[in-house]
């Protein structure tokens, strides 16, 4: 009885452990320090997006613009740490250095927050369907990214401080992995320990009742979108620093991967239930499965099919637990 409850509550963790053991035995060079760190690296950056998105989803919405925000933020960041602006459409004769670095750090966040603010304002004002509104934002922001990048791929992070964000290591693990873990913990605390967090759950669980209970619905909803925008921008900074390149197409499809991780983590797409820590586990689980497939030389076309199967399974589990709760 107890074990059953534990298994139900920690289902993803259990699946993770089982798959991990299987992969360790059967997938060549899976269980190596290098590969395990690789999995962490691969999940950490999109994991930041996942963590932010989780909060939006618990409030009963979804933010599909995150992938585009990643690319726009990446392009902006790289543009401003880049000495040679002639590659881009930005006409600015600034030099490499401090002010530019400050811009490189702050502009992406401002843009992410602004996109979230606009999404949130429209959705909360009209109680509009977030899928449609953020799908529009996805398109518009992607356009912005392509425009600024001038359709080109930009290379070369010249600034050492910025580069460190992607390259610095601690115990042979990249620093941004720790940043990711810390961000998850902070967001989880925000959800569990603050009135804002509680309101996120209340709005997701029963919007009408939340309004009657005087919950500041619009403010909370807007804030959830601002958070997902900010986290996408954060992910972009690290991505740029790590890859040393950016283009208007980077981050393409991340919204799908992020939503997959969130759903795998057991956060209900109908809202009211979920946790950042669970999404964190979901992100790592998905990365691990894809990683194993790569190691097994399974063509990437099948990886898409695998992702589809994963998301289907997760949704079925969601429906089942919901029925049991009813």
């Amino acid at each position: 009885m107890k074990l059953q409850n534990l298994l139900r509550r920690e289902a993803i963790l259990a699946v993770f452990i089982v798959l991990f053991v299987i992969c360790s035995f059967f997938v060549p060079s899976f269980f190596t320090a290098r590969n395990l760190i690789n999995i962490l690296k691969q999940s950490a950056i999109i994991g930041l997006v996942v963590a932010g998105l989780t909060i939006t989803v618990i409030a009963g919405n979804v933010d599909l613009s995150v992938g585009s925000v990643v690319s726009f933020a990446a392009v902006i960041a790289l543009t401003y740490t880049h000495a040679d602006l002639s590659q881009t459409n930005i006409s600015m004769t600034a030099q490499e250095g401090r002010p530019l670095l400050a811009l490189a750090f702050s502009l992406p966040f401002l843009m992410g927050a602004a996109v979230g603010l606009i999404n949130g304002l429209i959705i909360s004002r009209f109680q509009a369907n977030s899928v449609i509104i953020t799908l529009g934002a996805l398109s518009a922001v992607r356009g912005g990214a392509l425009l600024v990048a001038g359709g080109k791929v930009i290379y070369g992070v010249k600034n050492p401080v910025f580069a460190a964000l992607g390259q610095a290591q601690l115990f042979t693990i990249p620093v941004y992995v720790f940043i990711f873990v810390a961000a998850c913990i902070v967001l989880e605390l925000l959800l569990r320990r603050t009135s804002f967090g509680r309101y996120v759950y209340l709005i997701g669980a029963n919007l009408k009742a939340a309004i009657i209970a005087g919950v500041p619905v619009a403010r909370v909803q807007i804030l959830t979108f601002v958070i997902s925008g900010l986290m996408a921008a954060f992910a972009a900074l690290i991505l740029v620093a790590r890859l040393n390149t950016a283009s208007g197409l980077i981050g393409n499809g991340w919204e799908f991967d992020a939503v997959t991780a969130v759903v795998i983590g057991g956060t209900s797409l109908l809202g009211g239930r979920g946790s950042v820590i669970k999404s964190f586990q979901g992100a790592i689980l998905v990365t691990m499965i894809i990683n194993a497939m790569v190691l097994l030389n399974i063509p990437s076309s099948y990886q898409y099919v695998a992702k589809a199967l994963i998301i289907l399974t997760a949704v079925l589990i969601d429906i089942r637990t919901r029925r049991e709760a009813a």
Partner: peptide, 22 residues
């Protein structure tokens, strides 16, 4: 429809208005 927050605990349901005061 208008009062209960399903999926949350009894405590979380009871403290909804109180939450506003803090």
């Amino acid at each position: 429809n208008m009062s209960v927050f399903p999926q949350l605990t009894i405590r979380e349901n009871a403290s909804v208005l109180w939450m506003r005061s803090v």
